[in-house]
Design a protein around this nucleic acid. Structure first.
Lengths: 248, 248
DNA sequence: TATTACTATGCGGTTTTATGCAGGATTTAC
DNA sequence: GTAAATCCTGCATAAAACCGCATAGTAATA
């Protein structure tokens, strides 16, 4: 077995599985681990793979997300575009926090005159230079984790007003468990927001579809619209369509 | 499972959900929590995530503060340093908006445990990564000009609480007219803030000293402390000293 | 063909890395 | 204020990597 052959084999394995272990290669190729290690070194030196302790990884595997500031921006922008279509002039809109909502506010047309209530300081700041929008920031204890206002103050406030439409990003949505989240405060909050709104729009990037978090926010029956980055006719969404949710 | 694989998995999870819990990762990846903790440490060290007690948070979720457009930064930093000396652990602090206050919050010692009420979303966000501070954001209509919450909602709220100390930046202060400002909403607000606080700290860069704005906020007799970037013994401040204001 | 020079490989011993575990200290939650 | 969760520190262990060296192969050349 020539060195070149081993190298070819290793590259093939990595392309196949995205990773290899030194020990596996040693037995598979019937050479010592030192040899494998030296092979991996060379392939790393020639930038064909990335050597790590214990084996090697495919180059594309090496931190695929580092370059985008916000993850899945494009998907979120797509969702934002669709979501904006649901807003009509004169509406009272309620929004949560989250990057998807932020994208949405950034893309809000300049000629839309609405009142936006939000629990997210970031959303408020984002709308600061929008000429026609009135922004009401709902105050309360500021959660360092989720960067929104939470707590009973917010919940009480929400009891007193009725909104036309509520936009929520979500961390988990599935057929079986509906909308779920992982933070107790946020769950309380979202429940109150949902109850305070005439219609509910849930926004979810396709990667998060059918994922379940620890705590229950609301059943799917409460969701009026589900917006994803997918084609609304996609088969992936069939189950949601059958539940009577409007897809965008 | 190679370490890098775990790292990639963790980063993906964080990008998806904006946060992860160590315990969840440990079960998901079938390693001990110690290992996860060490992983999170490393990812934090390399600035890819933000480690917090119990897990980690997405970094991209932090608001990009741009301090480029702040006027007279050095003077404001000097003021901020002095102002912080007035805050003691356990206090209920009320703050306005403004760049001086922001500088102050940025310089707040990590070991200070206080509750900070603010009308400024920027202040809240600035304090997001401060471990011991509880932040209460006072909600209301968001003023696009001044980037703080204004309106009757805020004023009403302020009627109900009494604070130990209130920090205000100002656009005008003079012997004859006291503290003045140019925006009606802000004047209402500041009056309410002053009334709600046991002591009042006014912060003013020397350039704005002895300038007068259109509307009256409060007489000098209400001002307990005046903090400028000047030497407190400076002759420029003599008139204020004679009014019984504590200078810093 | 014998000599030489160079590369590739394996082996033993040492060092480093990765991980888990035990305990005590801290922090958080109720 | 107490209980539970989380963290930190030090330690133990096994795996992996490293280092030097011996040896085997390989190739070029006299």
């Amino acid at each position: 077995m020539l060195k070149k052959e081993r190298h070819a084999f290793i590259i093939k394995q990595i392309n196949l599985h995205n990773k290899v272990l030194s020990a596996d290669l040693a037995t598979a190729l019937n050479v010592s681990e030192d040899t494998i290690r030296r092979d991996l070194m060379e392939l790393d030196d020639s930038r064909q793979i990335v050597k790590v302790h214990g084996g090697a990884l495919s180059k594309s595997f090496h931190y695929p997300f580092q370059h985008t500031d916000i993850y899945a921006v494009d998907a979120k922008k797509a969702i934002a575009r669709k979501a904006i279509g649901l807003i009509k002039s004169g509406m009272m809109v309620l929004t949560g926090g989250g990057t998807t909502v932020l994208e949405m506010m950034q893309a809000l047309p300049q000629n839309l005159a609405v009142t936006i209530f939000t629990i997210s300081p970031l959303v408020a700041l984002q709308l600061a230079d929008h000429p026609l929008v009135t922004v009401i920031l709902i105050g309360g204890e500021f959660s360092k984790d989720s960067q929104v206002c939470v707590g009973s103050q917010v919940v009480n406030y929400l009891h007193e007003i009725k909104f036309d439409i509520c936009f929520l990003g979500t961390n988990g949505i599935s057929i079986a468990d509906g909308v779920t989240d992982s933070d107790l405060n946020i769950v309380h909050l979202k429940k109150a927001m949902i109850n305070a709104s005439h219609r509910l729009v849930v926004m979810c990037i396709s990667e998060k579809l059918n994922s379940v978090q620890r705590m229950n926010v609301c059943p799917l029956s409460k969701v009026d619209y589900l917006i994803t980055d997918l084609d609304p006719d996609s088969a992936v969404l069939d189950d949601y369509r059958e539940k009577g949710i409007q897809l965008y």
